[in-house]
Amino acid sequence: MAHIGTCYNCDMKISELGEFGLIDILADLIKKDDTESDPDILIDAGDDTAAWQSDATVNLTTVDCLVENIHFDLDKISWQELGWKALAVSLSDIAAMGGIPKYALFSLALPQETNVEDVAELYNGILELGQKYHVRVIGGNISKAPVLFIDSIVYGVTEAPNIMLTRSSAMPGDEIAVTGYLGAAAGGLKIISNDLVLANNLKMPLTTALNKPSPRIGEGQKLAADGVKCAMDLSDGLTSDLNHICRASRVGAVLNVDTVPVHPALKTAFGDNALDMALSGGEDYELLFTAGHDIMEDIKKQLDCPVTVVGKIVADDNCRITLLDGSGKIYTPSGKGWNHFG
């Protein structure tokens, strides 16, 4: 059996290495496989989607996997909501690149006692969101498994070859901003996991953010068209995802935690814990991006959703992130963001 490259840390368990350490190893092996070099491939691993050149446009492809009892509990989410979310998480990756989603494929692994009606409701959720963003489901696969697995593959394009957002384009001096409000999904997860009783005006926006997120497709396209170069979607939590940008761009960051736009319902429901939930809760599927001041001011005027500047990119080869409170003191959050094997 031929080996493409040396696998460092392969004597470790995944639980010791962590999700992102495993991704680094696999990405390194992919990059060492230069036997089939293709000049049309622009990005193969390490960003929100892969990207390759085709005629007058750039193609984007992303894949996500949702696993029962890891990513969702069927006692806490409807099959229709689950279908919506399965497509939404992949559409959010396309949004993070400034792309236009086109087609989707789904691979399902199902316990054999699953009701057909439930699977139909799953697809109703997929198709409902697909219709909203003009995304067609063009195929898939079905297999048997002890628990439910849903793999989503989404294909999209950019409006032009030179208009694409990446994680590796942040520059020292850039301002750091996010769309919308953060932490709602983390609040929704805490509510359904602990069967918390809250007023409906607090519960609904938080649980909806978790189970039926809305990807920022149009916003991503506007960012790319207006000159933003660096972005990603917020799936793992603000601090964790900002770390991904810093590592990809070889820069550091200063994050002013008092400026983080915590969701109003989260503040009311969880009080002093809300900020840390917004910093590290994950699954917000908002956009995190960086740009110079003038572009950022223009973006605030262009987008219909809130845009909040939360920090600045700084020169730092060690890719460190410093969190400061309103008085300029170091702030240490209680959470670390989502990591599958952490």
Results as ranks from 00 to 15, higher is better:
Leu82Lys: 00
Ile192Pro: 03
Ala177Ile: 05
Lys229Gln: 10
Tyr103Leu: 13
Ala278Asp: 08
Ile321Gly: 01
Val314Lys: 13
Ala199Leu: 12
Glu16Asn: 12
Asp174Ile: 06
Val154Lys: 01
Thr49Cys: 15
Thr208Asn: 13
Met277Leu: 14
Gly156Val: 01
Leu234Arg: 03
Cys319His: 11
Tyr8Asn: 15
Ile176Ala: 05
Trp338Met: 12
Leu74Asp: 03
Val119Thr: 11
Asp64Tyr: 08
Lys102Pro: 04
Val147Ile: 15
Asp64Asn: 15
Phe149Gln: 09
Leu74Ile: 14
Gly139Lys: 00
Gly98Asn: 10
Glu16Thr: 10
Asn318His: 15
Val63Asp: 07
Val137Ile: 06
Ser37Cys: 12
Leu148Val: 11
Thr290Trp: 02
Ser235Asp: 05
Ile176Arg: 05
Ile163Val: 11
Asp195Arg: 06
Leu288Ile: 09
Asp233Ile: 06
Ser78Phe: 02
Gln131His: 14
Ala177Trp: 00
Leu196Cys: 02
Glu68Ala: 02
Met296His: 06
Asp151Lys: 12
Lys329Pro: 02
Ser214Arg: 12
Asp93Phe: 12
Ser15Glu: 14
Ser90Phe: 00
Gly21Arg: 03
Thr207Leu: 03
Pro146His: 00
Asn141Leu: 08
Ile138Leu: 05
Val257Glu: 00
Ala120His: 13
Leu87Val: 04
Ile41Glu: 06
Asp276Asn: 02
Asp48Gln: 15
Val228Thr: 04
Gly83Cys: 05
Leu275Thr: 01
Asp304Asn: 14
Thr332Ser: 10
Ala160Val: 03
Lys144Glu: 13
Leu108Ser: 07
Asp44Phe: 14
Thr268Lys: 13
Asp316Asn: 11
Met204Ser: 15
Asp195Gln: 07
Asn162Cys: 05
Asp236Gln: 14
Ala248Asp: 03
Gly180Ser: 09
Met232Arg: 14
Asn201Arg: 15
Gly328His: 06
Pro101Asp: 03
Met232Ala: 14
Ala145His: 12
Asp316Cys: 07
Phe270Gly: 04
Gly328Glu: 09
Met1Thr: 13
Tyr123Gly: 11
Leu26His: 09
Pro306Gly: 08
Asp174Thr: 04
Gly173Trp: 01
Asp33Gln: 09
Lys203His: 11
Asp272Tyr: 07
Glu297Met: 14
Phe341Ser: 10
Gly5Ser: 15
Leu91Trp: 02
Leu198Met: 04
Gln221Ile: 10
Ile217Leu: 08
Thr49Leu: 01
Ala248Val: 03
Glu286Gly: 07
Val314Ser: 08
Gly173His: 07
Thr332Tyr: 05
Ala225Phe: 02
Leu210His: 04
Gly218Tyr: 02
His3Ala: 12
Leu74Ala: 01
Ser152Trp: 01
Cys246Arg: 00
Ala86Trp: 03
Ser143Leu: 10
Gly98Ile: 02
Asp316Arg: 04
Thr332His: 12
Ala120Glu: 13
